[in-house]
């Protein structure tokens, strides 16, 4: 099995792990200090950054695992 395929699993796991990591961190920080700055920062991270990273990593990993990138050289 090629490295491209095997790493597909790694990207899927990374994408999946980012979600609870960021959500828990956001809950903790906003809970400790519910300031407007905190809310804005974590809203941006949760609504914009996290979905892009998580979804793209999972989907990319899935395609890699399926061998979609095997022919690209």
């Amino acid at each position: 099995m090629s490295i491209k395929k095997i790493l597909g699993i790694v990207w899927i796991l990374m994408g999946g792990a980012i979600i609870p990591f960021i959500v828990l961190r956001a809950i903790q920080e906003i809970g400790e200090k519910p300031t407007q700055d905190n809310w804005i920062f974590w809203s941006i991270v949760l609504i914009v950054l996290m979905p892009i990273i998580a979804l793209s990593m999972i989907l990319f990993g899935w395609y890699a695992w399926q061998g979609e990138y095997e022919m690209i050289t």
Partner: peptide, 13 residues
């Protein structure tokens, strides 16, 4: 379409 989306993801990541 998967054929193009996979390249979009590759370009991004």
């Amino acid at each position: 379409k998967k054929e193009n989306l996979k390249m979009v993801l590759l370009a991004l990541l």
